[in-house]
Design a binder for these strands. Structure first.
Lengths: 129, 129
DNA sequence: CGCCTTAACGCTAATAATTATCAATTTAAT
DNA sequence: ATTAAATTGATAATTATTAGCGTTAAGGCG
């Protein structure tokens, strides 16, 4: 566990946002000014493979990372691309239903809701009023 | 509706696989030998915006496309990246539950199951036996 | 049917996120 | 403290996708 890796993991663990590699890079440089972007990517991949973090890619062209490796659901804003946690319990019965379809083995599932985040929803309300 | 666009849509509608832009390009060239890859991408974007097809990006670095624009669920093989439809009904109550969490407006949701496709599952069985 | 406007095409170059390379440095085990 | 192995920073390479642009084809109207 190098200093760089620890800083990257700390940054991810201490935010509820779901940042991109570039945002993490910016934050990491505040602690280790000469850390390189390659190191950020390298450690994000190592951490993902170790199951310490999640990589999310919902539509947008770059990956987002999540410091919470427990399965949970997300809401993606179609307007501003914000990703937010959806605090509802994991629905284990979904996997049972899917297994009944005989599509092979299932280790885990992911569920995303697409729409407008509260901020963009309000913005749109004002426009159409 | 140009010939190119129609061919691309036909290719997508006539396969149950969830091909990449490059695979579609290869198929399209069998019909229009001098079609360009840019045209494939351009039309895939147009068709997606028109709601005629779905763009899927689950983990892998390139997008997959789905000729069936109706919401449905997928199974992604972690071994061979194969994407298969999961023929289970859309669970509308998921959106109700998510709305109750107050994360903003929800237009639709997506659900993916990750594991092993039947082929890779069998391959692994043989190895460990 | 042929003109004509507009949208779409093929081609090539550009973008941009991510990965690979590699000498130099750090880690941590002995 | 020594040392082998792993990781770093810096840079170049890769690769999926998009943008620019002169040319071509669609399809509506006379």
């Amino acid at each position: 566990m190098t200093r760089q890796k620890k800083v990257i993991l700390d940054i991810l663990r201490s935010t509820k946002s779901h940042p991109t590699a570039d945002w993490i890079y910016t934050e990491a440089r505040k602690v280790i000014p000469d850390i390189s972007l390659g190191t950020v990517y390298r450690n994000l991949n190592v951490l993902r493979e170790a199951g310490e973090i999640l990589e999310l890619n919902y539509g947008s062209s770059y990956s987002h990372y999540d410091g919470n490796p427990e399965n949970h659901y997300h809401h993606v804003c179609l307007e501003c691309d914000r990703i937010a946690d959806v605090p509802m319990p994991v629905q284990a019965e979904l996997e049972q239903k899917a297994r009944a379809c005989g599509c092979g083995e299932i280790y885990y599932h992911r569920l995303e809701f697409y729409g407008l985040c509260p901020a963009c929803q309000q913005k749109k309300d004002k426009q159409t009023r």
